[in-house]
Nucleic acid binder design. Structure first.
Lengths: 159, 159
DNA sequence: TATTGTTATACTCTATAACTATA
DNA sequence: TATAGTTATAGAGTATAACAATA
């Protein structure tokens, strides 16, 4: 130690030190997202579901018999990207691709009992992770944050 | 059309339809982040800076003579990941790797005049993108959102 | 012609591990 | 021994384009 830049970054409190980035919503959104995402993985463990698989399973349970195209649209990703996710869930016997009478192009996604059980357990773990990570935020603050994030999400409908 | 799941997802307003995911901060954070990030790229154009290069240049200007290790720590990424970013900025003549007298291991990152000019122009474009994207949010709402996101970011210091 | 699921492919962002040159 | 920068490599996560089966 003893170099100029090194000293500066140690001596100054960067969180209070105004950089252009600190005023940008996008920058703060990404930094916050990364923190939550890393804690999510840590909380669910090495063999736990990834966030995207958890989301997919959640929506399959919420909307049983949903198709992959519909699920992709709800998740905001391309159809092609969903194949690996559904493959993984099917390999773990958390859901099945079921033929749909009347349209042989389509396969309905049907959660299994094991899938529902795994989902319930994972949801509990996810909520515990968020409760712990955001324990210094009041219920009102969390509500406010959710409302503001949803306000940003509303832009998706325009596109 | 005419299938069950298809009808359901068309008839129901998903944004008002309670799914477990909608109450999770992590899920809403990611969805919002993706929207902002896509708009950022669209706003800056095909030849524009990526968000991470913009962030790196911003910090190099804010902290001239910063080293790559310090910059990586500030950005929350690994040293190795910064090499390509600095390579890109150096190739575009936006900054220089300069030798540091007294420690030949280190190379200080020094923004060029062209780099500062490019940064000023890009910052203007980024602010315009955010102003437009968040035009339906009041100044107070944006302040609140920034404060709550920073509250999440504070957890990084613990790790 | 259009749509569903699928494959092949590539790109971005990131991490880990090991190397080199210094300290 | 430890650190700064670098390289090689791999893994998520995503997109685009094309295909076969079906509508």
């Amino acid at each position: 130690m003893g170099r100029k830049a090194l000293q500066r970054s140690n001596d100054m409190d960067l969180s209070l030190d105004a950089s252009d980035l600190e005023d940008l919503i996008g920058y703060n959104l990404k930094r916050a997202y990364v923190i939550v995402q890393i804690d999510f993985r840590k909380a669910l463990g090495q063999d736990g579901m990834s966030a995207r698989v958890f989301s997919a399973l959640s929506l399959c349970i919420r909307y049983p018999n949903i198709t992959q195209s519909e699920l992709a649209r709800m998740m905001g990703i391309e159809r092609s990207g969903l194949v690996a996710i559904v493959d993984e869930l099917e390999a773990k016997k958390h859901l099945q691709r079921a033929p749909v009478p009347g349209d042989r192009r389509v396969q309905a996604l049907v959660p299994t009992e094991a899938g529902r059980a795994a989902y319930d357990a994972t949801l509990k773990a996810v909520r515990a992770h968020e409760d712990r990570l955001f324990e210094d935020m009041s219920a009102e603050e969390k509500e406010t944050l959710l409302a503001l994030l949803k306000k940003i999400r509303n832009r998706e409908e325009d596109a």
